[in-house]
Design a protein around this nucleic acid. Structure first.
Length: 885
DNA sequence: TGAGTCACG
DNA sequence: ACGTACGTGACTCAC
């Protein structure tokens, strides 16, 4: 096998890394995010490709031959942001410490260096892998030369890989023709002019037919879009210049010194020191393994593919702590892996000799028994996976996904590779990396047996070892009660809710949809009439042009792409033109139809007329749950027209009705409790109208003389306090001046000094400890407060003030859900919890159980926890969700 | 795929 | 002086 060499465009990769990773600083206060992102990408690529040689190329500041040819070259480029610029020397420092050669040459760009080095390497019989964030490099992709384009998205790195054939497949032209395409279409980011009116589509079509620009120019007359044809002749010199600029040099006089490029000794102690200083914890293990002589854990994986073996396996399974993982691919159950000891794992794969029903039958006792301590990963999903095969219950005592979320709720995902990275400091390819994604995704069974077994079994092995570490951390954080008594039991509550679903009156929803459709048609015509032309009303861009250019309404530019046409902007223009109100009405109708009427009909089950939402327990930064496909937590209620939609949500049979219970002012009560504000606590104890009270305090009027406007303004102030108020936003919200808003806030803090103290305490705590927490010890890390950036730090401060409130409220309703669910089960009721909307629970109850269940609901919610203020719950009943509010 | 918009607590 | 309230998810357009 030929040796491999990896060549990296340092500038473009660090750029990608900078924008893909949120700003980070180390203890010294240096920005480190781009360097961190760079090495994340580098290590991932090294793992995947295992090259023998490695080098990194950089652009130099000096002008290149391209600038000398064309003044405008890269003329539109903005300079690097300061936060990135100062990381460049740091990157080079680490590379040098790792003995990775750095190539830069005056007058050339990194692209040219990569082009030339890769050519030399190829000539020398090596296999080159070229890495860049820029698609320009695609022109050098070859039969053996692979171009890799990494992307960092939310902390994860994905790469697109291109050989010559992939370029052909994706763009329909050869790599060399790619240059000609670019010469025609131009490149705004490099300020390569191209030919006017030829965009990507046309450029590709032309080059597919004529292969290069000279031939195309010669046949310009035959080219189809008339504009393109004319411009191609008129701007032919510009096209030639563009091609010259776009062509990567492949014959620079450079030396390919392989002896300096070897990857054998890059994990040097000097580099490790730097990595430690930069606090790149997830990378420590790589350096430790190489710098000290620690031995890697020996792993042994086994494969079971027949019924006999599977039967045997479960019969002889030791009664001890066990991690299991269910493998699901495209919704189909593919098998399960099991781990009882570090370094070991068994993959029971679903095959013709071991069909899913058989595996389920053998595994049923394992899933069900309470005598065995079982560790699962996303047990809620597992429950749905095996339920169709008659496994009614999975008794797990530790869910590693839930644990990972609890330990760091701001993570992007909690897959096995995330656990390995965060808790074991080991790096494994993600499922996406193993199986691919999108159209190039391959099924699990297409992997060679060894890889398939390792991939599957490793997941259980990682879960097994991670659990030990996570359990320790949960204990250290005093989160055991929250985890074992709230999050774990809640998973079963949510599983039941998901499985039961919510019934919809299909006929009523169809009627609602039809009515919306008709109203939309009418209002659309009226709007076209008033504007004098037809346009796409759903396009904010087109709408902006009509409103602010054609009709001359005054509206400041607000968004980066043009005029803002958001509701709050239009609201202010209502009196200037009658069209505005109609547009707002259109928006309301369009939203209701597309998202709610059409959207819900699309996800309704044909047979049951039910909607089965998914309740995510590991998404939010504050501890709330979220609802997807569909989102049942944002069904309209504020406006009458939308509110009507709630009539279509009905109990699943005639024998049932809805009970809806919601906490009154839960966040303000939580605030009163944590801030220990006597005035607020007292008000809640005496069941006072809290907004009226705030109004009387802020506006200095007697309680009984508060006007409706004062009360509603005070309500906004109360909300604002919970979010970490600012005078600007409050003034926007209330339509008052900033001065006035400032006065409101000042008055508020004078009357409620403990609230001010609470906010300051949270910011201090967040700064000192690096996290804030809820009453029940849920934590959120707050790196934003370390930021030198005013905007980010201010954001961090508001988060620090808000999270304990929103999070504690989330804890409370979760506790209530577990209690209510348990009470219903133990009482043998037919009633079921079907939905949670942050401060509200919806139950469908058998008519004869109604009174008993209403009591259970109210009591368990109000008594969920004991705070210094009472919790108050309103319960309503109805035959549909609207009537039950 | 990101931006804009808007639905909810 | 900075940009401008916390937490979500779905749909649509346009690059």
């Amino acid at each position: 096998m030929a040796e491999k060499i990896m060549l990296i465009d340092g500038n473009s990769i660090i750029n990608r890394a900078f924008y893909g990773v949120p700003l980070l600083t180390n203890a010294e206060g240096r920005y480190t995010n781009a360097v961190y992102g760079f090495f994340n990408i580098l290590f991932k690529l090294l793992d995947e490709d295992q090259p023998d040689y490695l080098a990194v190329a950089f652009d130099m500041h000096a002008p290149t031959f391209r600038h000398k040819t064309f003044d405008g070259y890269k003329g539109t480029r903005k300079g690097m942001p300061e936060e990135l610029r100062e990381q460049m020397p740091l990157l080079k420092e680490v590379l040098t410490a790792m003995h990775i050669p750095i190539y830069e040459q005056e007058g050339y760009e990194a692209d040219d260096i990569l082009g030339s080095l890769s050519k030399k390497a190829e000539d020398a019989g090596l296999i080159p892998v070229v890495v860049s964030g820029d698609r320009d490099l695609l022109q050098i992709a070859g039969e053996t030369l692979k171009v890799r384009i990494p992307k960092t998205k939310g902390g994860r790195t994905e790469t697109e890989d291109y050989y010559a054939k992939d370029v052909m497949e994706k763009y329909g032209v050869t790599p060399l023709e790619f240059i000609d395409v670019k010469a025609l279409m131009g490149d705004a980011s490099d300020n390569i002019p191209g030919v006017p009116s030829i965009g990507e589509k046309t450029a590709v079509k032309i080059i597919q037919q004529y292969h290069d620009i000279e031939n195309a120019i010669a046949h310009a007359a035959e080219i189809k879009p008339k504009k393109a044809s004319e411009n191609l002749t008129e701007f032919q010199e510009q096209a030639r210049l563009s091609k010259y600029l776009a062509t990567i040099i492949r014959d620079m006089p450079l030396e390919l010194d392989l002896s300096k490029m070897t990857t054998a000794d890059i994990f040097t102690p000097e580099a490790y020191e730097l990595i430690k200083r930069l606090e790149f914890k997830s990378m420590f293990s790589r350096f430790e393994q190489k710098t000290t002589q620690t031995e890697a854990v020996e792993t042994a994986f086994a494969h079971i593919t027949t019924a006999t073996e599977a039967k045997n396996f479960f019969e002889n399974l030791e009664q001890k702590e066990t991690a299991y993982i269910l493998l699901v691919d495209d919704g189909a159950w593919k098998g399960m892996s099991v781990c009882q000891n570090a370094g070991e794992g068994v993959f029971l794969e679903i095959t013709e000799e071991l069909p899913p029903q058989t595996l389920a039958d053998f595994a049923k006792d394992f899933f069900t028994t309470k005598d065995m301590v079982k560790i699962g990963h996303d047990v809620k999903r597992d429950i749905h996976t095996v339920a169709p095969f008659g496994v009614e219950e999975i008794h797990a005592s530790f869910d590693t996904a839930l644990a990972a979320y609890l330990l760091n709720p701001t993570g992007n995902s909690y897959e096995y590779d995330d656990l390995a990275r965060d808790f074991l400091e080991e790096v494994y390819p993600s499922a996406e990396e193993v199986l691919g994604k999108g159209r190039s995704k391959q099924p699990l069974e297409s992997l060679p047996e060894g890889e398939r077994v390792a991939f599957a079994a490793r997941q259980a092995e990682v879960a097994f070892r991670s659990k030990q570490i996570m359990a320790e951390k949960i204990k250290e954080n005093e989160q055991e009660e929250l985890f074992y008594e709230v999050e774990m039991p809640l998973l079963y509550v949510l599983a039941d809710m998901e499985r039961w679903g919510m019934k919809v009156d299909r006929q009523a929803l169809l009627a609602y949809q039809k009515q919306l459709g008709e109203s939309i048609e009418t209002i659309t015509k009226e709007i076209y009439e008033l504007s004098g032309e037809e346009f796409n009303l759903n396009s904010p861009k087109q709408l902006g042009v009509i409103l602010f250019e054609k009709m001359g309404l005054k509206g400041g530019k607000k968004t980066k792409t043009g005029y803002s046409t958001a509701a709050d902007v239009l609201e202010k223009l209502k009196n200037d033109a009658p069209i505005v109100e109609k547009i707002l009405y259109y928006r309301q109708l369009a939203k209701l139809k597309s998202t709610y009427a059409d959207g819900l009909l699309a996800v309704m089950d044909e047979k049951t007329d039910k909607i089965y939402s998914t309740f995510n327990q590991t998404i939010t930064a504050t501890g709330r749950i979220s609802s997807t496909e569909p989102n049942l937590q944002n069904i309209p209620v504020r406006l009458e027209l939308g509110r009507e939609l709630r009539r279509v949500f009905v109990p699943s049979s005639e024998e049932f009705c809805f009970l809806d219970a919601d906490y009154s002012q839960i966040e303000l009560r939580v605030l009163a409790h944590i801030a220990r504000d006597e005035t607020l606590i007292d008000a809640f104890r005496h069941q006072q109208d809290i907004h009226r009270l705030t109004a009387s305090q802020v506006f200095h009027v007697p309680f009984d003389e508060v006007t409706p406007l004062q009360r509603s303004n005070a309500k906004a102030v109360n909300f604002g306090i919970v979010y970490g108020i600012g005078s600007f936003s409050l003034s926007q919200d209330l339509g008052i001046t900033r001065k006035e808003a400032e006065q409101y806030i000042a008055a508020y803090f004078t009357k409620y000094p403990k609230i001010k103290e609470y906010q300051e305490r949270m910011i201090k705590e967040a700064t000192e400890q690096g996290y804030v927490s809820t009453i029940f010890h849920r934590r959120r890390a707050m790196p934003e407060l370390q930021s030198g950036n005013f905007v980010q730090r201010s954001f961090g401060e508001r988060v620090a003030m808000n999270m304990p409130i929103q999070g504690s409220a989330a804890d409370i309703i979760k506790i209530a859900m577990v209690k209510v669910h348990r009470a219903l089960k133990e009482g043998g009721f037919r009633s079921r919890l079907i939905l949670q909307v942050h401060d509200e629970l919806l139950i469908e109850t058998a008519l004869e159980e109604k009174e008993a269940v209403a009591k259970i609901l109210k009591e368990n919610m109000e008594q969920a926890v004991a705070l210094s203020v009472p919790l108050d719950v309103d319960v309503h009943e109805g035959q549909n969700w609207l009537d039950a509010k």
